[in-house]
Every structure is written in C-alpha cells, then in structure tokens.
Design a protein around this nucleic acid. Structure first.
Length: 275
DNA sequence: CGGACAACCTGGTTGC
DNA sequence: TGCAACCAGGTTGTCC
C-alpha cells in the first residue's frame, strides 16, 4: 500500500499517540510470519516494558525508538495497517499483532496479505536483517539536489522507472509516485537511468518533490487498502495525473494515456508528453 | 552488477 | 452466471 507520503502520515500520527507510552506485557503475534526478526516470542520479550521515545521514518520503514538504541521497526508492505483499539474491541479480520500499552489501549497491526514485517534490535544488528544502511537519500531532505540525483543514477543502463523504484538509489518512492514524478518531468519511463541530461535531472528532481509534497499535504493516496492510524483514507487520488489513468486524456496535451510493463511493474505515462 | 522472474499472500477485477 | 487468469501501492532471493 504505502509509499513515502502514506508512511509519513502514519508516522506522524503514531508519534503523536505512541510517544511516551510504555509497551505493556501480554503482546502477541497472531500470525508468526509477521515477526521478521527475531522470532515472535523473542520480539515480544524485547519490546515489552519499553517506553516509546519517538517515532520516525526512513524510506518506507517506521522506526519506533525504544531507548538504549533499541528500535522496533515496522514495514507495512502492501496491506499493513496500524491502529489503536481497546482490548475488548472486536478484532479486525486480518489482525496479526497486538501490543498492549500502559494506558489501557493497544496498538494493533492488521495485514490482509501477510507481507508486513516487524523487526526489533539495535542498529548494527538490524543491518544484518534489513538494508537500512544501504538505503539511498531521502528525496525531501535539503541535501537531495539534482546533482545528487544524477550521482545516484550515473552509470545505470536500466530504465529510469526501475532505478527510481530501487530503495538503494532513492528512498521512499513506489509505483504511484515514480509514475507521477516522471510525468511531471516529461521523461519517458524507459529512458536509460544514466542518460539524463542536467536539465532533465532538474526537471525530475522537481517532479519528485512536487509529487511527494502534494501527496503529503493530502495525507497520501488510498486506492483500496491504505488507511492511516486514525482509520482515514488519504485525499490525494484526485491529484494523480497518470497513475491508473490509462485510456483517459492527458491533462497537458489531451492525448490518451498509456500503460506498459517496465521491470514487471505496471507503468502509466503519456506517450506524447514523455518521449 | 544488472536484469528477469519467482516467491511471499489474499482478494478484487477482467475476460471468456 | 461461473470460473480461470490476471492484477495489486513492496521487497527479497535466485538464476543467468
């Protein structure tokens, strides 16, 4: 489900409602596969009794700071959803994890497709399990410039679409916002990643920033499954200009938008505006 | 190293 | 209507 704007929306709400809370005893994985590392019981034991010092985001990972360098890391993957509930509230049909809190509420994780994962450990330990240390730059950080973008793409022969989806190249983009950024930049998704001229890097950098900032302002895009912690959909769908709009008219030139497959992913673009 | 592709899961949509 | 095939916002592992 979620890309940078959706994960950031979740993180903001979690930070507000979880920071300062202590994780109580009695947590449980209802689907053990959701425990990525360590295994379910050990993970519960590690986080039980810890107080949340803050919640932040890196790429599409949610980092829950539990003090003493211990992190609870959550990745929502396609259909993961975090929400708060009272213990007696009926369980969501795809409830996978329950973490009771010291205020009588519990943090719940529901995930239809079971792709979402929890990890707990100190940073060095987590690096052996998830590629936190190998993630590319954050596209909304001040240090991310068109020059940096060019450095990340240099020498890459594969399509720009695939390169932008690679979290080691640039962190946080997914299928929606890559398509939207390329459209805003007027760049064909099949262009070899390392072949962009300086002007195109400027346009792509601007397109990425515009697509992400607009989505953030609208708390993300909800196509089917995505809901924030407060259970609300994002309002960004009307702002999408190409994603899943194949067959409709391009907002810029009026020609029909197309859908192709690039790197195994559905890709939406305007053949006229993105040559 | 890059690229193609299967795998992990379940449910919704599409097409015959 | 019925059912099979295909599709899905993500990531990882394997094979060439």
């Amino acid at each position: 489900m979620p890309e940078l704007p959706e994960v950031q929306t979740v993180v903001d709400q979690l930070d507000e409602r979880l920071t300062g809370r202590r994780i109580a005893l009695g947590g449980a994985f209802l689907w053990h596969g959701t425990a990525g590392y360590p295994e379910a019981d050990a993970l519960i034991a590690r986080v039980a009794g810890r107080q949340v010092a803050g919640v932040r985001r890196r790429a599409k990972y949610i980092l829950v700071d539990l003090g003493d360098d211990l992190l609870l890391v959550i990745h929502l993957r396609m259909t993961g959803n975090l929400h708060f509930a009272a213990p007696e509230d009926p369980a969501h049909p795809y409830l996978r994890v329950r973490l009771p809190l010291d205020n009588g509420q519990e943090l719940r994780f529901a995930d239809m497709r079971k792709f979402g994962r929890f990890y707990a450990g100190v940073p060095n330990e987590l690096d052996t399990v998830i590629p936190l240390a190998r993630l590319g730059p954050e596209p909304l950080d001040e240090g991310f410039t068109p020059v940096v973008l060019g450095e990340r793409l240099a020498g890459k022969r594969g399509p720009i679409k695939s390169a932008l989806l690679d979290q080691a190249v640039l962190a946080g983009l997914g299928n929606i916002y890559v398509d939207e950024a390329l459209f805003r930049a007027g760049i064909n998704p099949l262009r070899p990643a390392g072949s962009l001229a300086a002007v195109e890097l400027d346009q792509l950098h601007a397109g990425i920033g515009a697509a992400l900032r607009e989505a953030l302002a609208n708390r993300g895009t909800s196509f089917r499954d995505y809901l924030s912690v407060s259970g609300e959909t994002g309002d960004n769908e009307p702002n999408l200009q190409v994603f899943r709009r194949h067959g409709q008219s391009c907002v810029r030139c009026g020609q029909p938008l197309a859908r192709i497959v690039v790197g195994g992913r559905g890709t939406h673009y305007c053949p006229n505006c993105q040559r």
